[in-house]
């Protein structure tokens, strides 16, 4: 089976609805099929990657740590739109650091998150075979 390029677009905040968590589950399930997976975080979706989320007080499952497992699942192309961060008074430093070990580069640890402009993200969207929205 030829590998297709899958893009998951995430535009919702993490805890107000089930979308964010469902998206992550689908990504993990999809990753088992060894497709070429890219994630994009746009609009309120950028909040999903916020550091120091602690859901103990609201009685919800905290799935933020699961993002750190994405590298093990070979999901390492993660794009965050710069404009969405700026509008919310955020920068890359506010996000969970996500890394992966590059098999083709002696397992060097590399950043999975790339903050990109809208124009760059538009190009990334155009390169995909399949786009899934959450």
């Amino acid at each position: 089976m030829a590998s297709k390029k899958f893009l998951y677009i995430n535009r919702r905040p993490p805890h107000g609805s089930i979308y964010a968590h469902e998206s992550l589950e689908v990504v993990l399930i999809g990753a088992a099929f060894e497709q070429d997976v890219t994630l994009a975080f746009i609009d309120d979706g950028v909040y999903q990657l916020m550091q120091n989320q602690d859901t103990g007080g609201v009685g919800l499952k905290n799935f933020a740590p699961t993002f750190r497992a994405l590298g093990d699942y070979d999901v390492n192309q993660i794009y965050v739109e710069q404009e969405s961060l700026e509008l919310r008074g955020l920068s890359k430093d506010d996000l969970i650091p996500l890394t992966y070990e590059d098999e083709d580069d002696d397992w060097a640890e590399k950043d999975s998150i790339h903050v990109v402009s809208s124009a760059e993200l538009a190009d990334i969207i155009e390169q995909q075979d399949v786009i899934l929205n959450f």
């Binding site: 905040p13 805890h15 916020m50 989320q53 506010d94």
Partner: peptide, 9 residues
């Protein structure tokens, strides 16, 4: 406050 904490704000 618990809603800020949950969201990492």
């Amino acid at each position: 406050q618990p809603d800020l904490e949950a969201r990492g704000v």
